[in-house]
Structures are given as C-alpha cells and as structure tokens.
Amino acid sequence: MPLYRDEAVVLRTHKLGEADRIITLLSRRHGRLRAVARGVRRTTSRWGSRLEPFAHVDLQLAEGRSLDTITQAETLTPFGAGMGGDYQCYTAGTVMLETAERLVTEDKEPAVQQFLLLVGGLRAMTGGERQPGHVLDSYLLRSLAVAGYAPTFLHCAGCGLEGPHRYFNHAAGGVLCVTCRVPGSASPAPATILMMSALLTGDWNEVERLSTTEPRAEREATGIVSAYLSWHLERGLRSLPYVDRARREATPVGALLEDRFPVIPADG
C-alpha cells in the first residue's frame, strides 16, 4: 500500500459499517478524494474532530484498491470549530462545501484553484468581518468562474458590446444588450448588476455600500446567483434552501474561537 501526503478540506462524510466513515475531501494536489477513516465514530477515536466537515487538514493516505485509507491527520485550520456555534456560517458554509464537491467532478484530478478558493472562502467566512451571505455569493460566483462558467456583468454576453446592460440570462452567461436579448431574460435593477459584479471581483467596499443603501438589490442578486448556479449544475443544491440570510452585526467566528481556546496565563 503506497502512502502519499496531501493537504485537504473535508467536504462531506458518510457512515460506513460500525464505526467508520467515508470522507470526501478536496485536496491541493489530488483534487477530489474519497477515503476511509477507520474507527472515526468511536468516542475514543484518535481522529477526534480532525475529519469533521470544514476541517482543513494535513493528511497521510494509503492507496487502496477502491478507496484510499486515511492513516494520519493533523489539523491546519479548525474551520469547523466555530461553525457549529454559528448557524448562519454553518448553513452558508455547507453550501460552499456542496458546491466545491459538485464543481470538481473528477476524482484525483488536481483542482488547485478550486482548493485555494475554498480555503480562502472559509477563512473569510470564519473571519467574521463580512456577512456570511456575501461571502457565500462571492464564493459561488468565483467558483463558477474557475470552473469555466464566469458570468459577464459589463459586456453583452451575445455580441460583446460594452454596457451597462439591463437584461440578464443564465443560459447566455451574463448580461445582454437590447439587440441580443432573448425571451425569458430577467431585467434586474442596475444596482443588482453592480452588486453581482462587485461580489465576483471581490470589491468588498462596494458590496457593503450597496447592501446598506440598496437592500432590495442584495436580495435580487442572491436570487440570480442561486438560479445561475442551479442552471450550470443542472440540478439544484440540497443545502441551498436552508441558508439563513438574516442580516446581522459582525459577530466574528474568529472571536468565538478565542472564547473557546482561551489563552491561559502560565502562572495559572
């Protein structure tokens, strides 16, 4: 059984037999992987929380005939630690994991950009400076872009004419000018198009400004992003309807982590 090492994020787990789990991972060098973790469900398991969804881990795996086996795991970033205590982050983060699993279709085909994007997205989500909904929408647009489905928000998707344009169509892949417009196109508010463009490029100041001044545009952008994603994935994501999108004051999960890992002075 040849061994290999990789860095990965746990996307999903399935129960296997008495106490084992099949862990679906997105790894840096081997793309999507499915591997068995033996004994992980026992309370005395040496894996502990290292192989829970969201965990960013350094792994050693042994190649098997059908599934590989995880032989060692070290936590790099415990993204899951704060997620369980923050329902909004948990529901939004789950959509990110499901999207990553669906967009990286081939097992063991490297998908470095998707991996880096997911780690960055989870870091932003747990950093607490941004609204979980904004991080999610931005991640969805960018992961679609990495997968080759980047929507266009300025130039017409049909003829390339520079905008701004009024119409948006999923099938066409972005905004359309009056001439290229096809039946069934949405005609979102101009602020909605600006919002989506800012989410795709990561212009957080613009996202924050628009979400406070144009709350309707924010809701509309979320709807369009979800529909665009579902159209390209051919079937909807199971986790998407459960996202809790209530706007809130920044409650950093990073701060939650500090609560749970208090710094204890040496003198006791």
């Binding site: 894996w47 929380s49 290292r50 899951g80 749970r260």
Partner: peptide, 8 residues
Amino acid sequence: YADEVTLG
C-alpha cells in the same frame, strides 16, 4: 492524541 478542538 487529543485533537486541537477537543483539547481546546
């Protein structure tokens, strides 16, 4: 052998 989250 305790993981970081459990020990934390």
